[in-house]
């Protein structure tokens, strides 16, 4: 396995924050893997994802090292790294046609002209399994459902054919039926293109279905890192064990007794 990104002793403190959001995080991201970053609210999982993508706000204090041995030089956001956010309602531009947003990465980073980019946008919309991609390319975000908007955001994120795709809580605003379909789409795309996927979520069960490795964050620290089967099957950190214990599925004993 070759290392795509190498993170050493990363610490992040937001401006005016009393506490660091991340402390002493060291982690290698292997090329081609699906790495899940798991944690509850405030654990630092999104801060870590944003630090990797270079998307931290200005005047954030960052210490430690982030190296990209798998790339020729520093990554260019949008080119080498695609980022999909939780809420496509706010990450998509409401007054720009879907096709322009999906094709922007191809126009800007692959040097396609307007017409080629338009055609590429339709191809991308078809790749994320949107029905009638030509029609959707001319539509606006408000005319689509939440799940369809998230598919558009994914199409835009992969437009420049990045090496790394970061999906930051991309399914938590969606209902469970749509959630399953979006996760399936991400796996299909990264496997087909040999992309690396960093999948940030609070849902260990959801991640366990797709991830090669799990990084467990708590209190701004990386508390456990390992192959998914080991982390889920024999959790070492108390925080991971608590998440495994709190999992509810259809095999969990009900909290109520039998109906009277």
């Amino acid at each position: 396995m070759t290392v795509l990104a190498s993170i050493a002793d990363l610490a992040v403190t937001y401006r005016r924050a009393p506490q660091p959001a991340l402390t002493g995080v060291s982690l290698d991201i292997e090329a081609g893997e699906i790495l899940a970053i798991i944690g509850e609210s405030g654990s630092g999982k999104s801060t870590l994802a944003r630090a990797i993508a270079g998307l931290l706000p200005e005047r954030t204090s960052v210490a430690g090292h982030l190296a990209w041995p798998g790339l020729d030089g520093a990554p260019r956001a949008g080119r080498d790294i695609g980022y999909v956010f939780q809420d496509p309602g706010s990450s998509l531009n409401p007054v720009l046609a879907i096709g322009e947003q999906a094709g922007e990465g191809a126009r800007r980073h692959l040097g396609l002209d307007r017409r080629a980019a338009d055609a590429e946008a339709v191809r991308l919309l078809a790749r994320v399994h949107l029905p009638e991609p030509e029609r959707i390319a001319r539509a606006y975000p408000h005319q689509l459902s939440g799940g369809q908007r998230q598919r558009v955001a994914i199409a835009a994120a992969i437009a420049a054919r990045p090496r790394l795709l970061i999906a930051d809580e991309v399914t938590s605003a969606l209902d469970v039926l749509v959630q399953a379909a979006i996760v399936e789409l991400l796996v299909e795309l990264v496997r087909a293109d040999g992309m690396t996927l960093v999948f940030v979520t609070h849902d260990l069960a959801l991640a366990s279905g797709i991830a090669d490795r799990v990084a467990m964050m708590a209190g701004g620290r990386l508390v456990e890192l390992g192959p998914t089967s080991e982390v889920v099957g024999m959790p070492k950190a108390a925080e991971t064990a608590a998440l495994v214990a709190a999992h509810i599925d259809l095999a969990t004993p009900p909290l109520i007794g039998e109906a009277s």
């Binding site: 469970v176 366990s208 599925d249």
Partner: peptide, 27 residues
């Protein structure tokens, strides 16, 4: 509850049952 989930009859419930994430120890 137990009966409905053990023997779903509607498409939507069958889909909802299939979409429940399970803790997968062998991805």
């Amino acid at each position: 509850a137990a009966r409905v989930i053990a023997a779903p009859s509607s498409d939507v419930l069958i889909d909802l049952i299939g979409a429940v994430p399970r803790l997968n120890r062998n991805p």
